[in-house]
């Protein structure tokens, strides 16, 4: 899939996709990602197991993440260069949103 198509498909990113990619800066398996996201968001975001499986499958197919090894029949994933580029693009989009919001609020609407 071309970079343009990938951006259209994933950006703006869902919270689930965003936190999964973020968690995979370190190699983790599906349940490990879920626990990490819960911890990171103070239990606010608890990704359903079905959502986790389908998102990981889709991201693997789109090569945003790659399986690096297998432990006890569990795939351990890590973010790919392509995934990292997409994550950076999303962070830059979020940064702009934040700055615009803050600018408008501080400047008075």
């Amino acid at each position: 899939m071309s970079e343009h198509k990938l951006r259209n498909k994933y950006i703006p990113m869902t919270e689930t996709a965003y936190y999964i990619l973020l968690s995979l800066m370190q190699p983790r398996h599906g349940y490990g990602i879920k626990q990490h996201v819960r911890e990171l968001t103070g239990k606010r975001l608890d990704i359903g197991a079905g959502t986790m499986y389908s998102t990981l499958s889709r991201m693997e197919k789109d090569r945003l993440i790659i399986p690096v090894k297998e432990e006890n029949r569990r795939k351990i994933y890590q973010i790919s260069d392509k995934g990292r580029e997409l994550l950076e693009a999303e962070i830059s989009r979020l940064k702009k949103l934040y700055e615009h919001g803050l600018g408008q609020l501080e400047g008075g609407i």
Binding site: G30, A49, Y53, R73, R74
Partner: peptide, 11 residues
């Protein structure tokens, strides 16, 4: 895939 079952069972 086997991954489907392991993710759900782990949860």
């Amino acid at each position: 895939t086997p991954e489907y079952y392991s993710i759900l069972v782990d949860d």
